[in-house]
Amino acid sequence: MNQPVVVSQEGGVGRLILNRPKAINALNDEMVDLMSAALRKWREDEAVKAVVLSGAGERGLCAGGDIVSIHRDAKALVDAGAGDAEATACPSAVFWREEYQLNSEIAKFPKPYVALMDGIVMGGGVGVSAHANTRVVTDRTRLAMPETGIGFVPDVGGTHLLSQIPDRLGVYLGLTAASINGADAIALGIADHYVPAADLDAFVKAVSATTVDEALATYAQKPPASDLYAQRDWINEAFAADSVAEIVRRCEAVGTEAAEKAAATLRAKSPTTLAVTLRALRNPLPTLDEALAREYRVSVRCVRSHDMAEGIRAQVIDKDRNPSWSPAEIGDVTEADVDAFFAPLPEGLELTIVNP
């Protein structure tokens, strides 16, 4: 059980258990490699009828990626004044290439891929679960794309997922980095089935003993009402604005506690990455693979930017929760600033998804 991903086969079911519980199963290079190898094997193995993904420990499926190592890369690149070539060669960018390829392969997996989105599911954890064809949430699910709080932009196909959520609820989640529960995830269309956490072990055994559909018929329940979905009217109006500054103004005009909290949250995030996130969500691309390729461009520009190094420092390294963004004000971000994140990378440096 020392492997960071426990790979096994049980009764015709391939099991992937993310196995770094002390780190809430945060992804690293080895984990991505192990998952990719297993899925490529199982897609061709007629003995494997389904795959089940879960996380070890009680805290959650996956809290994302290795933020500390990303900070090392970002700080070194910023200090060196590095360009795109240096940024795409850094360990974080090399990892993103493999991670985004895995996200694409999960979305195209030809057999039932059951993601147990129990507990904390954030960032990279969303990437290995929310693109699945069978997404199971629980009463313990806490799902989020928290990137804007560290000077980053939703990746792992997050812009693709969020842009498809109606009533601008995806724009709200992408900009505010708010976490949602299992009932919210189903109401928003980023999960499919609700199984109480206490029933997960029995559910997995039933998948092995019968089929995914039969196991779901036995253990899936109607989820509770979604509190977030009930707020869709004011969110739809406020987050329809064409700029972050106007979204903040509209939230403040709504005047409810939830709207005022959203406005305050936005004021605390990186102005630049808020503007970049809004641009990506306002201009969705037709396919996941296209979104991943664009996200890779943006991620490379983020990792050599001041705000990502500073955001991780403030939230994770020094934990003073007081980042010094550049520029500091939402209104000071220019169109040219945003354009630079989306500009094509030099020849040979773009992400190309390879179909398995």
Rank of each mutant, 00 (worst) to 15 (best):
A209D: 12
S92I: 05
G157Q: 03
D201V: 15
T88W: 05
R135A: 12
V78C: 12
V156F: 14
F95D: 00
G170D: 03
L77S: 11
S163R: 01
V137D: 07
R97H: 11
Q164M: 13
L102K: 08
S92H: 11
A130T: 10
A215H: 06
A178Y: 03
A85K: 14
D79S: 10
V126S: 05
S129T: 01
G182C: 13
G158V: 10
L161R: 04
A217E: 13
D184W: 12
G189N: 07
G189F: 15
M145F: 15
N133A: 08
V128G: 11
A89E: 15
I190T: 07
I120T: 15
A87L: 05
P196H: 12
T134C: 14
V78A: 15
A85W: 10
D118V: 06
T211V: 08
L77G: 12
T148D: 09
V78I: 11
T148S: 05
N133G: 12
V128R: 08
T176K: 01
K205Q: 14
G81N: 06
S129I: 07
I180A: 04
E99L: 10
A198R: 06
D84L: 09
G127E: 03
I186W: 14
D184I: 14
W96Q: 11
V136A: 11
V78W: 08
A198V: 05
P91D: 02
L173P: 08
T141Q: 12
G123Q: 00
N181S: 12
A82K: 06
P166S: 15
R140L: 09
G81I: 04
G83P: 05
A107E: 07
G174W: 00
T141L: 13
L77Y: 12
L77K: 07
G182K: 11
T88A: 05
D199A: 13
H193A: 02
T210F: 03
Y194W: 14
A80I: 12
G158M: 09
R142V: 15
D167G: 02
V207G: 00
I190A: 03
D118R: 06
N181T: 07
G174H: 00
L162K: 03
L200E: 00
L143P: 04
I120E: 06
R135T: 08
L161P: 00
V212F: 08
G151H: 06
I186H: 11
D199R: 01
V207N: 08
M117C: 06
P110W: 04
P112L: 11
V136L: 10
A178M: 03
D199H: 09
I190D: 01
M145D: 11
F152E: 11
R142A: 15
A197S: 14
E98L: 04
